[in-house]
Amino acid sequence: MIEVQNLSKTFGDRAALAGVSFTVGPGTIYGYLGPNGAGKTTTIRILTGLTRRDGGTVLLNGYDIEREPITCKAQFGLVPQHTNLDAELTVEENLLIHGLLHHMAKADIERRTGELLDYVEMSDRRKVLVKTLSGGMKRRLLIGRALMHTPSILFLDEPTVGLDAAIRRRIWGLVRKIQSDGTTIFLTTHYIEEAEFLADRVAFLDAGKIVAEDTPVNLMADIGEWAVDFLDDNRLQTAYFHSRDEAREYVTGRMDGCTVRRVNLEDAFISMTGRKIV
């Protein structure tokens, strides 16, 4: 369980986070959506003890990250935005070092390494140097490494950034599998479809503040079910409708190349902030 109250962080005179509060229940996938620079990574870095907060409280399974850092850090696994695998070590050596950092016994490390490499479908790469792996494999190994010590909370910071669609979907399947084991997952992303597919609840973060938080369905329901994109004075505009028939009726007779589609989380974000996520 993750409990965050009134979290704030300032870099120079810029407020990266300004009073962020949320709670993530056990076994939930919590999507933390926002444009670049909104404060997503800063939140994760504070929650994992990599960056100091200026104010507020952070409790992971009831432990405060700054007051009880060692107990608290044993609760979670972290998949950072930038790959931080040891390129000069093999796949299994990376897992070994992670296991030792989490005080695991040698026998447990050996057993868990086998299990996890099966889990992320990389058993055949066990002895291979990490620098020879593809981007998708590195991402899968990062996720496997974060699960090595069987954490109850998993932080995923933009886990599929820079990956092609097929690998991204493979990782989504893996994330779902991890959730089905009872792990609480905190996911930052700016991929709309990723949050829609994975998240049970979503928070919209804009300029260091949470502007909305609910289930994806409820967030989208307020603006309608159907959207029509059209060009108005060379600017892309979107109109929202509660039924497909209303949307079709709106399009009928227009000559400007309209597109009718279902509403997505980005529409909800734009309607609340006036800004796009990407």
């Binding site: 990599l50 850092p69 850090k73 972290l78 931080n84 950092l101 989490h102 005080h103």
Partner: peptide, 13 residues
């Protein structure tokens, strides 16, 4: 390599 973060996120002093 950003490996320092891996150490800092681990439960070690």
């Amino acid at each position: 390599w950003h490996i320092f973060d891996e150490f800092q996120a681990a439960p070690i002093s």
